[in-house]
Design a binder for these strands. Structure first.
Lengths: 351, 351
DNA sequence: TTGAAAGCGCTAACAT
DNA sequence: ATGTTAGCGCTTTCAA
């Protein structure tokens, strides 16, 4: 039973050694479980550890070993349910593999990301997992490359390992689903919070599916705040896309949050989903499954993504994986719910 | 410009000293910004630091200082949007005060919490912030008390500082809102993911408001999975509460997630909200504000909660706050949305 | 103002 | 099988 002495400093390995009447190496050997410590001594050491409430100082250990078991996790916005869930899964898998996680939140600001990375590096993290990355400048690369391995999950950089869903294929599935339902005027809505690389891949998948069906892609870049959309470098209100002469019968949003926002706007405008407008999202966040949201979406296997990223990173750390960046892609799945339906052609003609 | 030498070990303070032609103490003085280093030497040191790409090893520093600037954060479930947002705010405020955060996710399991705490302690965290706490045993207390200060945010323990919303008052407001609308059969739904202490306080607020209005409290403990509810130690399907002879006209849920689940069930059963059933939540998570959810709820000021917790913890760390546990309470606010309305008395009578 | 030296708590040779 | 010793990279007296 530990002496609840709150004023004294935490006991060290030396305190244990003294109490057990052995050298500190022996204590160290016991702690690290190295073979070849006499049973009697081992017992005495264990007893001393228990009596003193001794807890090894990981900082000291990792200082001499010159490597930590801390993993840096760069996360964009924990307020975003997709990111939060990814963070959770990453923490879970890291923890299971004996690593601790040090989070650094960037709010998609590059300066925040850069100072965050510096902090992680000062703690000599063993590796860095990017759940978001603003690849605006080469700042991150200059800080990290050749120092610690890093893996980009659901985001991308050409100088590190990448684990992500098959965005292009996912977008194709989503788009084809809408085409198969009979839609022809199908727009792609790019949400600004989606990573550039992912957005591009999804756009490619969308455009290819459209062209293969003889349809022309229409891409909108969404600014949520004033419910405005940018198309061909021109701003216009979202409502003009949902109604009016430029209106579409279906929208594929680059993520669920954008899609849900779209449902909100549609509701306010009296545009009925799915009768007047079909909406498909991307990610399959928890919210999407609520009966009131009921969003058709492309599901990302977050658990699998986290698993793969940790497998990749630990492989690098253990030297099992060497050489240039690898890229792992996991399968996505279309989850059909109630936000998509056959277009109401009659209405179109009448309008 | 740093030499991108990927094979060499990171430069140490000694490398910098050699290159600058000074002693390592001088380098240390420059790094820590202590006054009284000759301008010329300072410049040489700075140049050497830059040339080498030197980055101080925080582990080494904190080993000699015998204290870290790492804060442990015990979080229940990052998949829960309320927890995720709290985690985000806590990270933000910690970071702003120069602390790093080490997360440990517990999934409401005590063993996970306990091993998590041990890990944090091995890293010699300066303090621990609990965003969730299973106070089942005294395990956590035995590990932490007298070792590092800890603050319980939105949860509770009698041996540490507590920062939380005024749960009782919040529950009173919610209940009174329903009473004022004319409801009489108002139930309290306890969601299992809400911390015990918070749940109790909310129940008290609810019960008091009910009794003051001459109404009798009805408390249900909810098991989401099989849509079952426990009342007076007897299990029954939720639908029996929404319809049937035991039905109520309003429900106050101990959190938003439970309330949203309730909306789902109501939708499935064809029970109209708010006409047939008014629902009030607690927390005001992002989802609650979606037009399709539109939940009346008691808002927790998460940013303020995080701010206060960090203020409290850092005050302890700097010795500005000493003595027994303090308890800080922040004001809550009722956000009236579309899930509550005057009860449809006609319907009641007819049913 | 600067440098030398003694640790912080631990691991990992190396002796014994 | 156990103890001795030399660091890990840094801060912090203490002298000079």
């Amino acid at each position: 039973m530990p002496t609840g002495n709150s004023t004294s400093r935490p006991p060290t390995i030396l305190d244990v050694a003294h109490r057990a009447g052995v050298s500190k190496s022996t204590v160290s050997n016991v702690i690290r479980g190295v073979h070849g410590v006499a049973a009697a001594k081992r017992a005495r050491v264990l007893a001393a550890i228990d009596a003193l409430g001794y807890r090894p100082n990981v900082l000291a250990r990792q200082l001499v070993q010159r490597r930590t078991t801390i993993l840096g996790v760069v996360v964009g916005d924990l307020g975003n349910p997709f990111h939060a869930e990814m963070a959770k899964q990453v923490e879970r898998h890291a923890s299971a593999r004996g690593y601790r996680t040090m989070f650094c939140s960037t709010q998609a600001e590059e300066t925040a990301e850069l100072t965050g990375i510096q902090n992680l590096l000062e703690y000599r993290v063993a590796g860095i997992i990017f759940l978001a990355h603003t690849g605006a400048s080469s700042g991150a690369r200059e800080l990290i490359e050749g120092v610690v391995p890093s893996v980009f999950v659901t985001c991308s950089a050409d100088w590190g390992d990448v684990v992500s869903g098959d965005d292009q294929r996912g977008a194709e599935m989503a788009t084809r689903h809408l085409i198969d339902l009979g839609h022809q005027r199908i727009a792609y809505f790019a949400d600004p919070t989606v990573e550039d690389a992912a957005d591009r891949a999804r756009q490619v998948g969308y455009s290819q599916a459209m062209r293969q069906a003889g349809l022309s892609p229409i891409v909108y870049y969404w600014r949520h705040a004033p419910d405005t959309v940018v198309h061909n470098n021109r701003e216009m209100p979202v409502q003009d896309v949902l109604r009016g002469p430029r209106s579409v019968t279906a929208i594929f949003s680059s993520n669920d949050l954008g899609a849900i926002e779209l449902l909100d706007v549609a509701d306010r405008l009296g545009v009925n989903v799915p009768d007047d407008l079909s909406v498909v999202g991307f990610d399959d966040v928890l919210m999407a499954g609520l009966s009131r949201i009921n969003l058709t979406t492309v599901a990302q296997p977050q658990e699998e993504l986290a698993r793969q990223s940790l497998a990749t990173l630990t492989a690098r750390l253990q030297g099992e994986l060497t050489g240039g960046p690898v890229r792992r892609t996991v399968e996505l799945e279309l989850v059909v719910r109630g936000s998509t339906a056959v277009p109401r052609v009659v209405h179109r003609k009448a309008g």
